[in-house]
Each structure stands twice: as C-alpha cells, then as structure tokens.
Amino acid sequence: MNSSTRSGKHIIWIKGALLLLLLQGCASTIETPLTLTEPVNWRETVAAVSAIDSWEISGKIGVRVPERIDSAVINSWKQKEAQFTIDLSSTIFGLGATRIEGNPNYISMTESGEEPVISRHPRQLIQQHIGWPLPIEQLRYWVKGIPAPVQSPDDKVEELKFDSQGQLSQLVQNGWQVNYSKYTPSRSVSLPGKVVLRQQQVKITVIINDWQLN
C-alpha cells in the first residue's frame, strides 16, 4: 500500500470520526420525544397517587398574564382530602401574608390585618380578587401529577403524554394544558417538582421544594 493510499484512508477515518462526534453532540441536545402510549403501570400509578389525600408542600408560584407578572412564596399548602389551607407571602395580594382556606364549594381569603373575604364560589372570588383564573377544583389532583376525576363533560381528559421514564409529561383537561417535570421519589411514588399550567394567555408555574405525605 503506497503512502497516498494510506493518507487517503487516514483522512476518510478522521472525517468519519468527526462526523460521529458531531452526530453524538447533536443527539445530546435533542429533547426526548414524548409518547401518547400509556405506560403499562399507569392505572396503578394513578390509583397510588390518588390514595395520597393528605399532604403538604412548600415552594413558589409565578403567574404571567398579558397585564402583569406576579409571584409568591408558598410557605405552606396543606391538603386533606378536599379541604385546603394555603399560606402565601406575596405581592399578588398586596404586602404581607395571605391565607386561603376552603374546598371546591367554599373559600376564605384573609390578608394580614384585614377581615376575611368569603365566598361559596371559589373560582369567581379568585378571578375577581387577584385577576387571573385558578382551577381550584382540579388543582389538588393536577399538582400531584394525575388527571382530576371526570365528573362532568368539562372535566374530560383530552390528552396525556409521557416521557421516556413513563412519567406524565403533559396533560390537557378542562381547557388547561399542564406540563410536568423534575419528578422526585416520595415513598412508593414519584411526584413532580415543577407544574406549569397554561390556558390561553395565562401561565401559572408552581415550583415544589418539598413534599410531605401524611
């Protein structure tokens, strides 16, 4: 084999190696595709997560609407079945702390130093008081990474997408798109650390720092 042949093969080998490295580099930046196929254990996961009806989280919430951007610290969100107590420190409700208590049929909002505002229509009160919608009936399920139970035609699950680990990555239900990430194991299940809700021009981001299951 003459030197020119060896040189030509050497150049081809180098080009091939560079191409392989380039392809590997591109592959590392490509997002893992989602799938519509339910994992084989999905129903069991929903049942296990649904059984967790008493829990507490802390973290942050951010809201983006066309008119403004709001944020708050979730000092504590305690949920026991349908009953919730949420303590916030935020600019959403003005200066000072705010406590929101209630269930899907009743809500009480108390700002520091003020008399509580009470309503039998939680969704309407939240919309009027803070200026953006919050799906309070479904949120206690969505924040755990599962669809809300279907109780009316509006509650229908339109879409479920899963990541390569078989974890729920995207849910579309009741006119909201909910995206999940940063799952962490907690007892026998994995629970999301980031939940993003979108509806039209509203984007609500919930960052969960800690899950406590009772």
Rank of each mutant, 00 (worst) to 15 (best):
V189D: 06
R198E: 15
D155H: 13
R64E: 08
V49I: 15
T110R: 12
A17V: 15
N209Q: 14
D155W: 12
R120V: 08
T37E: 09
R64N: 09
K60R: 15
Q127K: 15
S54W: 05
G25S: 09
L125S: 04
Q138W: 04
S119T: 10
V117S: 08
Q124W: 03
Q24F: 10
K60T: 08
S58M: 02
R43I: 01
G193D: 09
W77N: 01
D154P: 15
E56Y: 01
S181I: 06
L21E: 05
S28L: 14
H129M: 12
L134N: 07
R140Y: 00
A97Y: 12
K78G: 03
W142E: 02
Q151D: 09
D70A: 02
P135I: 03
R120P: 13
I86T: 06
D154L: 14
E38Q: 12
Q138V: 00
R68Q: 10
N214K: 15
L22A: 12
W132F: 14
V178P: 13
I204N: 06
I69D: 07
K144M: 04
K78D: 02
I69T: 11
I52E: 12
V157K: 11
R123M: 05
Y106M: 06
S54V: 06
L36W: 03
S152Y: 07
E137L: 04
Q173H: 08
D53I: 03
E159P: 04
Q201K: 15
V206E: 05
L197M: 11
L34N: 02
N41F: 06
V206G: 01
Q151W: 00
R6P: 03
Q200L: 05
P122V: 05
S7Q: 13
S188R: 15
C26N: 06
E159Y: 04
K78Q: 11
I126F: 07
H121Y: 10
I100R: 07
P33K: 04
R140S: 04
S186A: 13
E67Q: 15
Q151A: 06
C26A: 09
L19F: 11
E44C: 01
M109N: 07
G62K: 14
K78P: 00
R140H: 02
G16M: 09
S181N: 13
V73A: 04
I11W: 13
C26E: 04
G96D: 13
N179G: 04
V202N: 10
G8R: 15
Q173I: 01
L18Q: 04
V73N: 03
A72D: 02
L213E: 11
G131S: 08
L22F: 13
N41W: 07
G113R: 14
S90D: 14
V157W: 07
S76I: 08
E44G: 00
N41K: 11
E114T: 07
Q79N: 09
Q199R: 15
W55E: 02
I126N: 07
V206H: 04
I52R: 12
T110Q: 14
E158D: 14
I12G: 03
S119P: 13
I207R: 08
R120E: 13
I100W: 03
G175F: 01
S108M: 10
T98I: 02
K161V: 00
G175D: 10
I74P: 12
K60Y: 08
D163Q: 03
G193F: 05
